[in-house]
């Protein structure tokens, strides 16, 4: 079959909503885009453990501590599913991790912001997980089978995290004046970076068109961002807090909220590595990996020894 026919057949499958599976033929660019996106997603889960892990030792009650630990652990689990899904495209987890550490692979820039107070645990859950979910719900229907199936599992846990985050803020919003101030401050700091999570504007986004045609994505960055704004504007009212955007206003014609301009200089700066925590996040990951080197080597050596022992016994 010619390349042209293969491509035609591939697109027909996509159009008919038939999932692409690891052994199916796929265009190189489809494989690359999926690998880039899934591994980036996996890295985001793993790096994303750090800003929240930052508050485990200081969680203000035993219940909150247990919830936070379980949440960060869930993220490790998500990372595992996603690395496995990405591996079906022919790259090993080890290679992906090396690419993360060398700076070749990216992760979500949101995790380059610091978690400064306990209220950030609420704001991250509510806003960051909230933004992630909109993307992930869409990805449950993505065309690559292993990715779509991983997302179904992940979405269930993520929506739980978002509710927990909101509930953390709700308690603060009903607390002392200091707690209320802490809550508002966290919302102020996390709002704009959360909007940036959806990526560049559609007019600036390089990967969007092809990804939509291949049904890797089903909604554009701007569509998802708008959906997020509309959702959060309603939820923030329940907290009795405000969003830090004076231009936020209901637009009767569009039936959506208008919102102010995102600081794209900041966005690109953080993407390029100049965010407040880019350096620390990557260093923490590298340190864990390097300090674990002898552990992994020992586990491997031991497994080899046992295998040899079994073989000797069998012979």
């Amino acid at each position: 079959m010619s390349l042209h026919d293969l491509e035609k057949l591939f697109q027909e499958k996509i159009d008919k909503e038939i999932k692409i599976e690891p052994k199916d033929w796929m265009p190189d660019a489809y494989r690359k885009t999926n690998l880039r996106q899934i591994s980036q997603h996996a890295h985001s889960e793993i790096v994303g453990m750090l800003p929240e892990g930052n508050w485990i030792s200081r969680a203000p009650s035993l219940k909150r501590k247990a919830i936070l630990i379980a949440k960060v652990q869930d993220e490790a689990g998500h990372g595992l599913y996603l690395y496995s899904a990405a591996e079906t495209l022919g790259t090993s987890r080890e290679q992906m991790i090396d690419d993360l550490h060398s700076g070749k692979a990216k992760y979500s820039s949101i995790f380059n912001y610091p978690t400064l107070t306990w209220a950030d645990m609420g704001a991250v859950g509510w806003l960051v997980d909230g933004a992630a979910i909109l993307n992930q719900v869409m990805l449950c229907r993505t065309s690559y089978g292993p990715y779509a199936r991983a997302m179904v599992r992940i979405c269930k846990e993520e929506s739980f995290h978002q509710r927990q985050g909101f509930e953390t803020l709700l308690v603060l919003s009903k607390g002392t004046d200091e707690q209320k101030a802490m809550c508002q401050d966290a919302i102020n700091r996390w709002w704009w970076p959360s909007l940036m999570m959806f990526g560049p504007k559609d007019s600036e986004s390089t990967n969007s068109d092809q990804s939509i045609k291949w049904k890797i994505k089903r909604k554009t960055n701007d569509e998802l961002r708008q959906q997020f704004v509309d959702m959060i504007v309603e939820q923030v009212k329940l907290l009795g807090m405000t969003l830090p955007d004076p231009e936020l206003k209901w637009n009767e014609d569009r039936k959506h909220y208008d919102f102010g301009e995102i600081n794209w200089d900041e966005f690109w700066n953080v993407v390029k590595g100049n965010g407040p925590c880019n350096k620390q996040r990557l260093e923490a990951r590298k340190k864990a990996h390097e300090e674990g080197e002898w552990v992994r080597a020992a586990a491997l050596a031991f497994a080899e020894k046992r295998k040899n022992k079994l073989n000797t016994k069998a012979a």
């Binding site: 793993i46 453990m49 750090l50 892990g53 485990i56 030792s57 501590k65 630990i69 960060v72 652990q73 490790a76 990372g79 595992l80 690395y83 923490a284 340190k287 864990a288 300090e291 674990g292 080197e293 552990v295 992994r296 586990a299």
Partner: peptide, 11 residues
Amino acid sequence: SDWCAHGPILE
């Protein structure tokens, strides 16, 4: 709990 996010292997 200090190991959470810093373990030698994800598993």
